[in-house]
Computed example of a mutant assay.
Amino acid sequence: MERRVGTLLRMETGDTGSFLLAVESQGRQDPDKPASWAYYLSHLHAKDRLPPVLLVVCADRRTAARAARRVESVRCSGPRSPCVHCSSGRTSCP
């Protein structure tokens, strides 16, 4: 089975170097999504050797709160602690 993230961007910064920004849209709560997110982060880190950042964009506060929980199964090593996961909903954006 192949899983694909909604949008993947390679970001270049002057200070810290490159990282991958994976953007995933989440319209409703899905108990299987944390496993998918762990897969995305682990796969991206293994494939590209760049720190992955997962941004989950949610339609409502409840889904955003659930999506904001830490993905515990992700273990990436490196000096910059490369696996990051965050969520955003209507109440956290202007």
Rank of each mutant, 00 (worst) to 15 (best):
R66V: 05
G14R: 15
R61D: 13
R3Y: 13
S88L: 12
G6P: 06
F19P: 12
Q26M: 08
E12A: 13
L20A: 07
S88Y: 07
L44H: 01
R70T: 05
D60T: 04
W37Q: 05
P94Y: 07
S81K: 10
C93P: 05
P82M: 08
L44N: 00
V74P: 05
C76A: 03
T13R: 14
A38F: 02
R61K: 08
G17P: 13
L9F: 12
W37R: 08
L21M: 10
S81M: 11
R90K: 08
V74T: 06
S36A: 11
E72N: 05
C83F: 12
Y40K: 03
V53T: 14
R75I: 12
D15H: 15
A46V: 05
S18L: 09
Q29L: 09
R4I: 06
V57M: 10
L54W: 06
C83I: 09
C93Q: 04
L50H: 10
P52R: 04
H43D: 00
V5G: 00
R3L: 07
C86Y: 03
G6I: 01
D30A: 14
L54D: 07
R49F: 04
D15F: 15
V53Q: 10
G78V: 08
V23S: 13
P82E: 14
L20R: 08
L44A: 01
L9T: 08
T13V: 14
V56A: 02
L55C: 08
S92I: 00
E24I: 01
G6A: 05
G78S: 10
H43A: 01
P52I: 11
C93D: 03
R3K: 15
D15I: 09
C93I: 12
R10L: 14
R28A: 10
A67G: 08
E24H: 09
K33D: 00
V71F: 07
V71M: 13
C58N: 00
T63H: 11
K33T: 11
L8I: 07
D32C: 03
A59Y: 00
A67C: 14
A35Y: 06
C76N: 13
R4E: 05
D15T: 10
S81Y: 11
T63N: 15
A65G: 13
P79Y: 07
M1E: 11
P34M: 04
S81F: 10
G89C: 00
R75C: 09
T63C: 06
G89M: 01
A59F: 00
R75D: 14
A64K: 06
V74M: 01
